[in-house]
């Protein structure tokens, strides 16, 4: 599990691009890895192939914040997208909306998905050109070096997990009794779920 986070602060990539799918974040040929590390090299490969792209601009290089457009992280469910961002050093992504799957993956890898209005995102893209951006989980605000201040919301449980660096699997395993109870009640209610038959021959 990721380290606890209370604040992400520094330079931000003022990108603002919409509908960034996970194929763009990390192309499929990078998915042949069996570990979580080292994917930063492949992050935004097709974007970075273009001269003058935001990721290779020395002003923002290594910044912990990415500012993007609507529907960030749509497409494939690959968690490699979150690993690639984390490997690149990104700890918060700010966008008007995120795909459901990406947003879940981001939380689990210590990346804060911050939803702000399009107007706020437009303003941040401007402010980030030469200022810093701070995402604060204590006050639930995004601020800039220019006195901008935007409030955002996070699911309280997920916020706790981020701030305390909690291991979700460990937390759930502590509910073992409840899970076992569910399983035995369900075995009465829907006995065919675990009693999976296996016999030969099947028509397509």
């Amino acid at each position: 599990m990721a380290d606890p986070i209370t604040q992400v602060s520094g330079r931000a990539y003022p990108w603002g691009a919409k509908n960034i799918d996970t194929d763009i974040i990390i192309p499929a040929h990078w998915l042949k890895t069996t570990t979580r590390d080292g994917l930063g090299k492949g992050a935004f490969e097709t974007v970075r192939a273009v001269e003058g792209n935001v990721f290779d601009d020395p002003r923002y290089a290594g910044g912990p914040v990415l500012i993007a457009g609507d529907n960030f992280g749509c497409g494939s469910s690959r968690e490699h997208a979150a690993w690639a961002l984390a490997d690149l050093g990104i700890r918060a992504v700010i966008a008007p909306s995120f795909s459901d799957i990406f947003s879940g993956n981001a939380f689990k890898n210590g990346i804060v998905p911050v939803v702000l209005s399009q107007a706020a995102v437009d303003r941040l893209v401007e402010a980030a050109q030469d200022g810093e951006v701070t995402v604060d989980l204590e006050t639930m605000t995004v601020t800039t070096s220019y006195q901008d201040r935007f409030d955002f919301a996070l699911d309280p449980f997920r916020r706790d997990c981020l701030m305390q660096g909690l291991d979700e699997i460990g937390l759930t395993l502590a509910q073992d009794t409840a899970i076992s109870k569910f399983e035995s009640a369900d075995a009465e209610h829907r006995p065919w779920i675990s009693g999976r038959a296996r016999h030969e021959g099947v028509a397509v």
């Binding site: 469910s77 968690e79 799957i101 879940g104 993956n105 689990k108 699997i169 759930t172 395993l173």
Partner: peptide, 12 residues
């Protein structure tokens, strides 16, 4: 689901 969730389902 993502891979962390795959792990969560495998374990729990």
């Amino acid at each position: 689901i993502g891979t962390s969730e795959v792990e969560h389902v495998l374990a729990t």
